[in-house]
Design a protein around this nucleic acid. Structure first.
Lengths: 288, 288
DNA sequence: TCCATTGAATGGGTGATCCATTTAATAATC
DNA sequence: GATTATTAAATGGATCACCCATTCAATGGA
């Protein structure tokens, strides 16, 4: 990093050693009259600095999707850090969906197109950690989907409607062939397509993050009980018709009614509603 | 990992070496009749496996916020991996807000209460990478805030309204004293409080992620031009009065009008609207 | 012309070693 | 006895020197 020039300097001059007591606090407290808290600081570690720099280059537009970072060994030398700590930074950025690391000659660290699934992971973590509840998630989903319906009625294009139609056909086929779990996958895709038809990727991202988790519960329920929503494709067609007619009121009412009936189905058997089951039970299309 | 037992086994038996060609593909293609794509696989790396296991323990409820993981050296041994690769995993989880690493004896890796700011980072990355646009973000913000107003009218409690009132007082003071940038901070807090008054943390998280970025633009604009929204506190009070009266229509109209006027202010000077400036220009309260 | 071989670049992973910080136990001082 | 330095151990932070596996272009033989 910038704080290190000689490659073999043993001591890394870290952010202001917090060894001196009273005097230091006095000095800083004098700086701003109304700042009684002194917690943060949180000595910067090199990998954080590296992450930040790369993100800075991204925000500045110096780095763009598709670009390749220098090879690990070279970049480590340029930054004056060990390869290991550089890798910690690259790893973090990879997990964040910013980078993709590829092996082999001609491999390297490539800036990615943003991965919208990352928001799903955030939601999952928040749920796992108990920061948010299933109830809040469900409620948010209902409200956001209501918003989506209104926007979709206003903005959905022919291609969007066709995609939804094709999705319903797949749902129908899965139902006919008894592939109930595939049908759950179709449902998730349905909401994804619906959200996409708003033409707003931010909203689409939000919807998918919230839908992904919801569908895990549905999946767990269907897998354990074998019970599934009746007349699903039919209801979808009614909804799509309303959407095609740009009938906001009807479309909104139909979707809301459907969401409520699904909720009732889920709540029938609280045992299958276990957070742990739903979050742990991954399936092909639902892995992160 | 489970795939390694001897501590000095040189070759790590990674996921099925993809060396054999036709035969392997034939075999797998025979498995599912309608699966023509063979891209994924993406050989699992140990750090991914570690992250997944820890997240699994979280989802299962075995690990809870406040818990401490074994020390790096010990955990690495338990998992049968090197300390370096374990650290890559812990780093990633720390960046994800799942863990916090603390130094010193009695230090270690502690499971955190979920950090809702992580969603902000996702939004920022998506914007930096060009996956979403400022326009989509603004649009989403307007719609989500409209939803928030409706929910807040229904659910806001006395304490929420008091907090908003106190925030407006701070805004007023900052205006009086000419601290325009502090006032921007107040604005961000206002929306945070408003979102919190819905009683739904999922929605609050979404609002804040979208507000944080918006406020960066406002901040950059105010900092560069010295121009600031007129009669801000007054407008806020009118809005709060409507909210207190549970007058959804009026509150919604007032907020919408305000958002539009802010938008006009921002668009006056497209030069100050640079994405790069806004994203790079961090400020005390707005750092990640 | 085509296919196998080779070799270099690159990410993936390991183990040993050191540093800096933190805390508790201990010793020294008042 | 209470307070204050000192010490020692545990822990994360970081480095170095290797080695392996994968990939792909260059090479060379059939």
């Amino acid at each position: 990093m910038s704080t290190k020039s000689s490659p073999r300097a043993p001591a890394r001059p870290r952010a202001a050693a917090p060894n001196r007591r009273e005097r230091a606090i006095d000095l800083r407290a004098a700086g701003s009259a109304a700042a009684p808290t002194f917690k943060p600081i949180h000595t910067r570690r090199t990998f954080e600095e590296i992450c930040e720099r790369i993100r800075e280059q991204l925000a500045l537009g110096v780095l763009k999707p598709g670009d390749k970072l220098p090879a690990e060994r070279e970049l480590a030398q340029q930054l004056g850090v060990s390869r290991n700590v550089l890798r910690e930074a690259l790893r973090s950025l990879e997990m964040a969906g910013v980078l993709k690391l590829q092996k082999g000659v001609k491999g390297g660290a490539f800036i990615q197109q943003g991965d919208t699934r990352r928001m799903n992971e955030v939601m999952r973590d928040m749920l796992s950690l108990g920061t948010i509840s299933v109830g809040e998630l469900s409620e948010a989903r209902v409200h956001v989907l209501d918003l989506v319906v209104r926007l979709a009625c206003a903005n959905a294009r022919r291609a969007d409607l066709d995609a939804l139609e094709a999705n319903i056909a797949r749902t129908e086929l899965a139902t006919k062939e008894g592939r109930l779990l595939d049908r759950v996958e179709c449902s998730r895709e349905f909401y994804k397509l619906l959200a996409a038809s708003t033409g707003n990727k931010v909203i689409a991202m939000i919807v998918d993050s919230v839908t992904e988790i919801h569908m895990r519960f549905v999946y767990a329920k269907v897998a354990s009980s074998g019970v599934a929503m009746a007349r699903l494709a039919e209801k979808r067609r009614q909804f799509l018709a309303a959407l095609s007619d740009r009938n906001v009121t009807l479309a909104s009412r139909l979707l809301r009614a459907h969401l409520e009936s699904v909720q009732r189905m889920l709540e029938q058997d609280p045992g299958a509603m276990s957070l742990h089951v739903a979050l742990a039970d991954v399936q092909p299309g639902m892995r992160r």
